[in-house]
Amino acid sequence: MVTINKPATKLNEPSKPQKSSSPSLTAFVKAFKNSIVLIVFILLWELAPQLGFVEKTFLPPFSEVVQAWWELLVTGELWRHFEASILRSLFGFLLALALAIPLGLIIGWYPLARDLLTPILELFRNTAALALLPVFILILGIGEVSKISIVLFACTWPVLLNTISAVKNVDPLLIKSARSMNISSFKLFYKVILPASVPTIFTGIRMAGTGAILVLIAAEMIGAKAGLGYFITYSQYNFLIPEMYAGIITISLLGLLINYGLSSAERYFSRWKQ
């Protein structure tokens, strides 16, 4: 018998009358709702090549891809590429946060800096990072530096611009209220501006998280000796099609992992909202 911990009911919301009879049934229905489309998708992927609807060579059945994925995992091949990718993206991403958040806070705080810098920042943000990849490779070579730099570049703009607008859009009434309590500018910044900005900054951070993977994989496809992007193009050139799909699935997993991590962090830091 499965028992489910009832979530603590909020006092200001009347608890909804339970429609279904048993809680384990409700949980089952919920799990079914969440996964049915995914299951159908996988079934289609499995059956379409098996039944000859699509060319098996170009789209191997899901089971073959999983098998290839498992072999790559066991031999450690997959891990090597996964590690290379996640280290590069994490490094570039964290560097971007360390740079963009403090800078954004400062720029947002000084109206003159904000007015002067916003146009050029918008220009940079709207320049697709990948368009600049050749420049990065020309200047920094095809080693780790150019890849980390392009991730850094791609992650910086959303975080920076969101931080600036977060600081700019802090409710003036909160500032007035805090100022009326005669607190110092430093405390005002630290105790009011910063916490009030967190949700908007996080929107930028999540945008950066998505961008980091995208840009990195593309960069690895163009010039690298390891990494998931490299592995996918390598498999394609060598006609290792199940392996190629295994690489793609791994990228999906990496993306999900990063998104999950960032959402959890966001929930933690914005727990005072709904």
Binding site: K176, S177, S180, M181, N182, V192, A196, W272, K273
Partner: peptide, 18 residues
């Protein structure tokens, strides 16, 4: 200047939501 000898209550509460 502002001082803690005066306390202010605003129409829109001005509570810190966090």
């Amino acid at each position: 200047g502002p001082g803690l000898d005066r306390g202010i209550v605003f129409q829109q509460y001005a509570l810190f939501p966090w």
